[in-house]
Design a protein around this nucleic acid. Structure first.
Lengths: 125, 125
DNA sequence: GAGGCTACTTACGGTTCGTAACCATCGGGA
DNA sequence: TCCCGATGGTTACGAACCGTAAGTAGCCTC
């Protein structure tokens, strides 16, 4: 129970604060953007090309949220054509180890999970 | 780039497999359910009471997905009133360390992130 | 025989997401 | 002069997802 107090129910707000953070961190694209930016500062188009499946819209929205949370910095250069660079802040970099831990878990268990899904889906539906 | 290959772009499917796993793990409730079940096997109602804010509907749906992925086992007893117990499988337990790492990060940075959000929101909107 | 316990399921309205198209700016070429 | 392309978005719209609240099934108690 003690560990759990530190992960979910912390400090009597019913875990609302923590859930607010986890909801943002654990959405569809945040992890991938953070992991990609770990390589260094990057332009919008470069991010778009390197994160398979993301749309411009979701890239924009997720980057804005990351900027709002102080995890990513946005630098716009007054050039033509425009240039905007994104980079992890120190706080953003501190997210990398736990994010990678989770990603590694996903990779390690990806085959087994897929197999479980297939079994589950073919049983009856 | 090498680390990234192992987190996002792995094995030429454009990262689709990994994203499929991460999308499921990183949804709104999965982490909290897994963290809660770390305490031991639990009944539906107990889970419902201990995860602040979750609805019966989302608890049912998320548990079903966890079962499908082989992370949670479901045991129904033919009693009246009905009794259904959920527990982490070994695979589910293996998710605990990375999940806790992420939760700890969220807790450590929760205040700073909230402050950043407030600043961002009051700047102009 | 009305109501409660448990574990769901369903209906429905609102939010979020994905796709695709559009926009603004400026330089360069015809 | 006019159109094109590059870049970094924004907008429109239909589909998918989520939360709220109510309903369901079986048996027990009052």
């Amino acid at each position: 129970m003690e560990q759990y107090e530190h992960t979910c129910m912390i400090r009597g707000d019913g875990g609302r604060a923590i859930r607010g953070i986890l909801d943002r961190i654990c959405d569809k694209w945040t992890m991938l953007i953070v992991a990609t930016l770990d390589e260094g500062r990057m332009r919008f188009t470069h991010l778009h090309q390197h994160i398979p499946g993301i749309s411009q819209r979701m890239l924009t929205l997720t980057l804005r949220n990351l900027e709002r949370d102080g995890l990513v910095s946005r630098t716009a250069y007054a050039e033509v054509p425009p240039r905007v660079e994104y980079a992890l802040t120190d706080r953003g970099k501190s997210l990398i180890p736990p994010a990678l831990a989770l990603a590694r878990w996903a990779i390690e268990h990806s085959n087994d999970i897929q197999a479980s899904r297939d079994t589950y889906d073919t049983q009856d539906g």
